[in-house]
Simulated assay, not measured.
Amino acid sequence: MSARELTYVKAFNEGLRQVMRADDDVFVAGEDVAGYGGVFHMFDGLLDEFGPRRVVDTPISESALVGMGVGAAVRGLRPVVDLMFMDFLGVCMDQVVNQAAKMKFMFGGELSVPLTITTASGAGLGAAAQHSQSLEAWLAHVPGLKVVMPATPYDAKGLTVAAVRDDNPVVIMLNKLLLGAKGPVPEETYAVPLGTAATVRPGSDVTVIALGRMVTEALAAAEELAADGIDAEVIDPRTVQPLDSETLVASVRRTNRVMVVHEAVTFSGIGAEIAAQIQDEAFDYLDAPVLRVGAPFSPVPFSPVLEKQYVPDRARIAAGCRRLIERRAA
């Protein structure tokens, strides 16, 4: 595959554009996705290429939007519906949890629901408590849903292609602070299989399992730690449902120490589930307890100073790794 650099948002756009070209049943709907291209311009240019029948602006009603998507999916189309901010899931949770996620089960597996929900997640833009959350733990708890969290432009394209092709409802969480990040992206259409983690940096002393934008912070922390002789392995789950536990556990068995870091609130976050699975599968290999790093139990602050303290960063990740190493040495 030939590769060139694209931004995260343009990689997403390209992946969606390619599956729309390949399949006339794929269409996009959401608030301001057509003429404006979406609040973060994720859908720029799609209206010009595919027209108003396949790129549709909708009223400001998330429950109606997702409900329409469920209906279209069960009738054989492949809708991609956009929720501007992940926080707006609260308005349409019945449609997501009780309709999209349950349909296949309630019809004995005879029904497919190829619905893709895209949404922007994460803090860092000063957007305050109702526009800055990371709610992957809500969704991963619901049988029937798949949840993906691309951390790179390559994955933003490949996971989008896989999600739209999937016959089950998938939520794509696009991190707002990653939208302008650049990286190599092949021009050809490709899919990143859902449920496959990536080892983005091999290491031998400690495993850092990082979700979404925290992969960037974990890699920066790993470089800082390397200067002190600590070799950190960084694993990106890429999807939290399904979760590639096999890759995570295999890494922990090699390094004997593990930290899980995510932008969401630490309490009842995905880190707790990962820690429990490591406890089940790799307890005898651990030289220190599993460490979780996440946000405090508080709404996201509006103040830029407080928000910076709220979101985990490379310094907190590096400090946690040092604590794990010191605890083993003791």
Rank of each mutant, 00 (worst) to 15 (best):
E188G: 14
G38K: 06
L46R: 15
L46P: 15
P79M: 11
G76F: 04
C321M: 13
A72I: 13
A250L: 07
V39S: 07
Q130P: 03
T196H: 04
A151Y: 15
H262C: 02
R328Y: 03
A264M: 08
T7F: 14
G51H: 03
G69A: 02
D287L: 14
M214D: 11
P114N: 12
D167K: 08
G37T: 10
L177N: 04
P52I: 05
H131A: 06
A315T: 12
V265T: 10
V161F: 12
G90L: 07
V91Y: 01
F88N: 02
L174G: 01
A120Y: 05
K157D: 05
M68H: 11
P304Q: 02
V113E: 14
L111R: 11
V185C: 00
L139V: 07
N168Y: 09
E273F: 00
A226G: 12
E224D: 15
T216P: 01
A210E: 07
L306Q: 12
V55I: 04
T160M: 07
E281K: 09
D313S: 10
L324C: 08
R323Q: 15
M106I: 11
D244Y: 09
V96D: 08
D155Q: 06
G69E: 06
A319D: 14
V265R: 06
S134T: 11
F43L: 09
V164H: 09
Q99H: 13
Q18C: 10
C321D: 12
E5G: 00
L65N: 06
D25T: 15
F105D: 02
W138H: 03
L47I: 14
G158I: 08
G76T: 03
L177P: 02
R292M: 04
V192S: 03
G124T: 06
E326L: 09
P150M: 02
A288E: 13
A3K: 11
A197T: 06
P299Q: 03
V19H: 12
M1H: 06
E246N: 04
A288W: 11
A315E: 12
H131Y: 05
N98L: 05
D57K: 11
A221S: 11
I270W: 06
W138R: 01
D155C: 01
R322I: 08
G30Q: 05
L135M: 13
D155K: 03
V261R: 11
V56N: 00
R254S: 05
T196P: 00
A198V: 06
G126L: 13
P312D: 11
I278K: 13
P296T: 08
L225T: 07
D205H: 13
P312I: 09
V171C: 09
R328P: 00
L135Q: 08
G124M: 09
M93H: 04
C321H: 12
L115G: 07
A163W: 03
I230R: 13
M259H: 08
